[in-house]
């Protein structure tokens, strides 16, 4: 299990979420959708400060997400 942080701009504080590095992005993005009521397919995202454009069939690990990664979302 890893922890990662999701911040939607203008909505402090970011959430701390547990995740499995083997989870597919398709599954993880549903967590974001439920928590923040945003459509994760139609937002601008950064991983830390790098642009982040995940593919649904990749795992979090494949997308470079690691322990305590920070995803920032502009809704």
């Amino acid at each position: 299990m890893i922890f990662l942080y999701v911040y939607v701009h203008g909505n402090p504080p970011p959430l701390c979420l547990p995740a499995n590095p083997g989870d597919k992005w398709a599954d993880f993005k549903e967590v974001i959708r439920n928590m923040y009521k945003v459509n994760p397919d139609q937002v601008e995202m950064t991983h830390f400060d790098e642009p982040f454009q995940p593919q649904d069939d990749k795992t979090l690990a494949e997308l470079g997400i690691r322990q305590k990664s920070l995803l920032k979302i502009k809704a």
Binding site: Y5, Y7, P13, P14, L15, C16, L17, N34, M35, Y36
Partner: peptide, 8 residues
């Protein structure tokens, strides 16, 4: 209601 646990 804040939906989870916050990052600290």
């Amino acid at each position: 209601l804040y939906p989870g646990l916050p990052m600290v």
